[in-house]
Write a protein that binds this DNA or RNA. Structure first.
Length: 881
RNA sequence: GCCCGCUUGGCGGAAUCGGUAGACGCAAGGGACUUAAAAUCCCUCGGUCGUAAGGCUGUGCCGGUUCGAGUCCGGCAGCGGGCACCA
């Protein structure tokens, strides 16, 4: 018996699939489409286990859907712009383009070795002008539609990467990539008007039924809708008229019910009034500067005291004649949210209370708990807005918070002093990056004409190849000639925009480009309309907000500019867990690679020195901790099928999976076992039926892809057939629901049943047909997971049509139907026995009689009469005494 | 601080409709085959009492609903994730 040789076999089948163009996707309106997409990789150098897991899952779905008769689109490309290429250029003197394309070549080879069912003719890289030129064109269309604007604003500046970051890219006050503390700078930047869709992006989350609840919730929190009011207070004094706002201060609040508890107003250090005052008063200017310098890190915010500066200005209370409250500039008020101004009600807001205590401002409770006259406020504000009742509030007294809000709203609107307002936490997406390796923003700055879009017939604006990375900052702006160009309008000398797009722009529409990757327009509507939306998108949960929210926005912008029919890009989303591994350190505390470590009964030792190794926590694979396993080595040693099988075994796909050597060996043993089961049975099998090549959807009814089995009476043979057909049903359900670990277990079970069957000494009539049916089923069902081995087995079983062209088997319910059922018998809810009964529609009386006749039941009744006997047909009988 | 999720053998995990807890795999132990090793095959494998038959106990902790709870409800603890001076 020959052992299965994964290396030769995998290469052979990959070549045959390619020769047959088995995965080429063509639009066909007569067929139902299915678009499977995994998040495309950044070409960092080599693929890692996370890629293997991600792309294996996508490939399982793609191969399964293809076998079910869907017209499947399963493409692959490269998220090829970004900082690491520039860092490589700085550190090693390699040009970003060369570095990137070399990495792509390596990683493409590695992905191909995985045997993925990808249509490689659609491959794209975002760093190619054939891609980003279309992006520039869409940007100009967005600009025309008012979806893009340019403004000076305070931005997050990453001092290590020397560039601006979007809010979404700042985590705990640090750059998401560099980890450097982010600074605030004033810069003129391009923004995508994502807030224009805030409400739609939020509401439409409800329609994304095949998205994880967790991701929808995260996006919902990120968008952060709140309902409140804008209220305009009149600023006292004759000089007020000359202030920005013309004598009025507009605040945003969600607790207008507490207006009788107002004891101060506060404005941001960046509020127009604050800026105006600062211009005339150095003390105020100093204070404002101090506020801005605190920074936005979590720790800074935690530590920072509430600081305020009394402007001397006062506002008039809208409902209490003659009552005035001071306006402070305060460090905890953000210009970017609401109106950049608030009214403070210390009794019912913790920040306001901290502030009031510090500056000795009045604390007047205006909402009381249901069970008390007034809330007891010492250090904690009373913030319950559901159960409270209004007090100390004149016409509001006795009302609930909701009633009071409605009343205040009505009165303020009548007085034209305010109106309901909805505010979002979401900010517009700043897309300008001061970097070379990105898509140039296609505009020209002219002293005479201002900002002039590059005419569309002059696109693409390509990156210059000859750049220097010697100096810090943006190589594009240092380039001697590139930015100089005549103004398209007036032909006078002008300069190009040297900022490039955030790379998240590139990844916000690649899924659409895949539908018509060679079109000379950004997309071909007919093809996009056929393939989009992506039916199943798969990737890491770390993109729950950034990439997934940007893509949802961008698709809406494409819809508005006529590039797309739909507003949602991904109708199904699955977020897979990470691949983890134990960490190892030597006696000096240096991290060790897993291949340097040998596990022994007494512990782990160094492979070469024999020195003791400290086994640390199980953590997600990372180069810095060296707890990485190179997929290429695994594929070379065990084969792609083994690696694929392992990464979906045992652990549910959404959870983190631990990579273990023994686990991989287990997976490898199973691939050999499948081959052996087939190989050792070959001489016992009847000839195969050659099923037709897959053309249509698998028709419901009796499977046409499996061998036809004659009428059988032997119980062991029937049991094997039952197991076979039951497994078809279960695995189909499992794959549909992304329960790959369970599907793997079902295949093990079927293999166990086949093993046991082949070891029977008797050889009843029909056994050979049932065995062929079981083996063929196992092979077809395992094919999405282990496609090369499955092809090899399929051929060995005598088939001449490749398995990629064979449809999915269909369960025959007449075969899988069980004749008997086992009924659990309980006494007082405890299991005391089991009844094996013929399947049927028995009366409750019959169940009772059968149960009461059991020895175990009689024994546990101890002579007593049952009070009650609960019968659940087909399942359980519970005798209660 | 606010929001969300999770907690089952030595380990990954099954049991998703309230109805046999521990499928399947890994690890471990025992055995067969072999000159030996590898490979393969067979057996055991939550805890506990018992020679056995068979009990008792057991799904983070406390309580509740129910004939019956890993599953539902209330409370608590631990772990993980998201957001965070958002008015």
């Amino acid at each position: 018996m020959a052992r299965y040789n994964s290396k030769t076999s995998e290469q052979k089948w990959q070549a045959r699939w390619e020769a047959a163009q088995a995965f080429l996707a063509k639009p066909d309106p007569a067929r139902k489409k299915y678009y499977v997409l995994e998040m495309f990789p950044y070409p960092s150098g080599r693929i890692h286990m996370g890629h293997v897991r991600n792309y294996t899952m996508g490939d399982i779905v793609a191969r399964y859907k293809r076998a079910r008769g869907y017209n499947v689109l399963h493409p692959m490309g490269w998220d090829a712009f970004g900082m690491p290429a520039e860092n490589a250029a700085r550190e090693r003197g390699v040009h970003p383009a060369i570095w990137t394309h070399e990495n792509i070549a390596t990683m493409r080879g590695q992905l191909k070795a995985m045997g993925l069912s990808i249509d490689w003719t659609r491959e794209l890289a975002t760093c190619d002008a054939q891609y980003y030129g279309h992006e520039q064109r869409m940007f100009l269309d967005f600009l025309e539609q008012g979806l893009v604007y340019r403004k000076e604003s305070s931005v997050n500046w990453d001092p290590v990467d020397d560039t601006v970051l979007a809010n979404e890219q700042v985590i705990d006050g640090r750059g998401w990539r560099s980890g450097a503390l982010v600074e605030q700078r004033m810069l003129t930047q391009w923004f995508f008007k994502i807030t224009a869709y805030a409400d739609d992006l939020l509401k439409s989350l409800d329609t994304l039924e095949r998205w994880p609840e967790k991701v929808r919730l995260m996006q919902s929190n990120w968008i952060g809708r709140s309902e409140g009011m804008r209220i305009r207070f009149t600023i006292s004094g004759p000089q007020a008229k000359s202030l920005p706002g013309g004598g009025e201060l507009e605040v945003y609040t969600t607790r207008h019910d507490t207006i009788f508890g107002m004891s101060f107003c506060a404005i941001s250090a960046d509020h127009p009034i604050a800026l105006e005052l600062a211009a005339k008063n150095p003390a105020i200017a100093d204070f404002c500067k101090q506020c801005r310098d605190i920074g936005g890190t979590a720790e800074a915010v935690e530590r920072a005291e509430k600081l305020g500066f009394d402007t001397g200005l006062k506002v008039q209370h809208p409902f209490i004649s003659g009552r005035e409250t001071p306006i402070y500039i305060a460090n905890f008020v953000l210009m970017g949210y609401g109106t950049g101004a608030i009214f403070g009600c210390p009794a019912h807001d913790q920040r306001d209370l901290d502030f009031a205590r510090k500056y000795g401002l009045p604390v007047l409770p205006v909402v009381a708990p249901a069970d008390a006259e007034a809330p007891d406020i010492v250090n904690d504000a009373y913030t319950d807005h559901l159960n409270g009742r209004l007090i100390n509030s004149e016409f509001l007294n006795g009302m609930s918070v909701a009633e009071a809000k409605a009343e205040i709203s009505k009165r303020l609107q009548t007085a034209n002093a305010g109106e309901p307002a909805i505010t979002y936490r979401l900010r517009d997406w700043g897309v300008s990056r001061q970097r070379y390796w990105g898509c140039p923003i296609p505009v020209i700055h002219c002293d005479t004409c201002g900002v002039v879009p590059v005419p569309k017939d002059q696109l693409p604006v390509t990156l210059p190849h000859d750049v220097s990375f010697e100096a810090p900052g943006n190589p594009l702006s240092h380039h001697p000639t590139w930015k100089h160009t005549p103004c398209p309008k007036c032909a006078k000398p002008a300069v190009r925009e040297t900022d490039t797009f955030d790379t998240f722009v590139d990844s916000s529409w690649y899924f659409a480009r895949f539908c018509s990757p060679h079109a000379d327009t950004p997309i071909n509507r007919q093809e996009v309309d056929y393939w989009m939306p992506v039916d199943q998108y798969i990737g890491g949960v770390e993109h729950a907000i950034l990439h997934l929210l940007y893509s949802r926005f961008y698709t809406r912008a494409m819809q508005q500019t006529g590039y797309a029919r739909d507003s949602e890009p991904f109708s199904g989303l699955f977020t897979q867990g990470m691949v983890t591994h134990e960490t190892y350190k030597d006696a000096n505390g240096a991290w060790l690679f897993p291949e340097q470590v040998v596990k022994q009964p007494g512990g782990a030792v160094h492979k070469d020195t024999g020195a003791q190794v400290l086994v640390g926590k199980i953590e997600s694979m990372s180069k810095s901790k060296r707890n990485v396993v190179d997929p290429e080595h695994i594929i070379a040693q065990y084969g792609a099928d083994t690696a694929r099988w392992f990464v979906v075994s045992d652990t549910p796909p959404e959870r983190d999976i631990e990579w273990t050597e023994s686990g991989v060996e287990g997976a490898w043993r199973f691939t050999q076992r499948v081959w052996r089961l087939v190989d050792e049975s070959l001489d016992k099998l009847p000839p195969p039926k050659q099923p037709e090549r897959l053309k249509e959807f698998a028709a419901p009814g009796i499977s046409s892809v499996l061998v036809d089995v004659p009428e059988i009476t032997d119980e062991a043979v029937l049991a094997l057939r039952r197991a076979t057909h039951r497994t078809i049903r279960l695995i189909t359900e499992d794959i549909e629901q992304f329960l790959f670990n369970r599907a793997v277990a079902r295949i093990y079970e079927l293999a166990n049943s086949i093993s046991a069957f082949t070891q029977l000494s008797a050889n009843p009539a029909g056994a050979d047909f049932a065995l062929r049916e079981a083996l063929e089923t196992m092979v077809i069902l395992a094919a999405p997971f282990m496609p090369h081995l499955a092809e090899e087995c399929w051929t060995a079983l005598g088939h001449t049509t490749m398995l990629v062209h064979i449809g999915w088997p269909v369960e025959n319910p007449a075969v899988s139907k069980e004749d008997t059922m086992s009924i659990t018998i309980q006494v007082n809810g405890k299991r005391r026995g089991e009844l094996v009964m013929e399947r049927g529609d028995w009366s409750e009386e019959y169940y009772r009689e059968q149960a009461m006749a059991l020895d175990a039941v009689i024994r546990h009744l101890e002579g007593k009469q049952p009070k009650k006997i609960v019968v659940v047909p087909m399942r359980i009988v519970n005798v209660v005494v």
